[in-house]
Design a protein around this nucleic acid. Structure first.
Length: 272
DNA sequence: AGCTGTACCTGCAGGC
DNA sequence: TGCCTGCAGGTACAGC
């Protein structure tokens, strides 16, 4: 599912492929994919050009020449796709931006959890879904990371890592992988981490996010990049989606448990 | 306030 | 076989 590296991948590809392109019209097949009025959304976007792309946590923001910004959250199964307009539209494609070069930008979302939202450019970062986010996972210093985590000292470390108000951009895949890399159990309380463990977790998280960006993200389930291509990082996962399989370090079985209502994958003998 | 549980939605795995 | 149930996922929101 799209987390920080996947959204960053789409953002970078969008910047190279769609900057300056004009939206000639917008088709909305499923109104509820738009937060706010769908007809007003289509009217506001039609005729504008893309002038910029930004990412904040897992949110993608597309700036338009008319002063509007489109906020996009892909949630679990959303795909943002750039393809020729003549390509057939399947039942999971809910919004189509027709462009001035014979291409479309399409939102496809099997689970229908994602959304598009229109904002004025200067107000986009003040919207509740942006305003309440904690510091970017790749922008924090070790000291800021410690301070942020401490805000949930009584929580399990897995829950704190995935809390977007604490650290923004990390989801289930990268929290599991970072905890394995740092040899910390997802069930450990934040308050029980020592300084060395916090530092390991910080470095592991950064390295894993950065290397996944280099590999255009992790394609488990439905994630594909802007061109509909799978990423490569799924081939490097150590624990996520590997329950029952041998740990690469100790050959013991990877376990899956529930932590704070979410599935957590880990090696019980390597992670303490 | 701060945490946990549940709804949202669909496809798919597993059981019989 | 094929039906049926349960589960996965990120976030918003209800409720303790």
């Amino acid at each position: 599912m799209p987390e920080l590296p996947e959204v960053e991948t789409i953002k970078r590809q969008f910047e190279r492929a769609l900057m300056g392109r004009k939206v000639t019209s917008v088709d909305i097949g499923l109104q509820k994919m738009i937060r706010g009025r769908a007809d007003a959304f289509a009217r506001a976007v039609s005729g504008a050009r893309f002038t910029g792309a930004r990412r904040r946590a897992k949110l993608l923001m597309l700036d338009l020449s008319n002063g509007y910004t489109i906020l996009i959250h892909l949630k679990v199964s959303g795909q943002l796709l750039y393809m020729p307009s003549e390509t057939g539209i399947d039942k999971h494609t809910h919004v189509v931006f027709h462009l001035d070069n014979g291409m479309d930008l399409r939102l496809r979302d099997v689970r229908q959890f994602g959304y598009l939202k229109l904002a004025h450019r200067e107000e986009a970062t003040g919207m509740p879904e942006v305003r309440d986010l904690g510091p970017e996972a790749l922008d924090v210093s070790l000291e800021q990371f410690r301070t942020a985590l401490a805000r949930r000292r009584n929580s399990k470390v897995k829950a704190a890592l995935m809390d977007q108000r604490i650290i923004a951009g990390v989801g289930n895949i990268y929290s599991d992988e970072a905890l394995f890399c740092a040899r910390i159990s997802p069930e450990r309380l934040v308050s029980a981490l020592d300084a060395d463990e916090e530092a390991r977790l910080y470095r592991c998280l950064r390295e894993l996010l950065n290397s996944s960006i280099m590999r255009r993200g992790t394609s488990v389930a439905l994630y594909v990049d802007l061109f509909g291509k799978k990423g490569e990082n799924q081939h490097y996962l150590k624990v996520y989606g590997r329950s029952g399989k041998p740990c690469e370090i100790c050959a013991g079985k990877i376990k899956r448990i529930k932590v704070a209502g979410r599935s957590a994958h880990f090696c019980p003998s390597c992670q303490k």
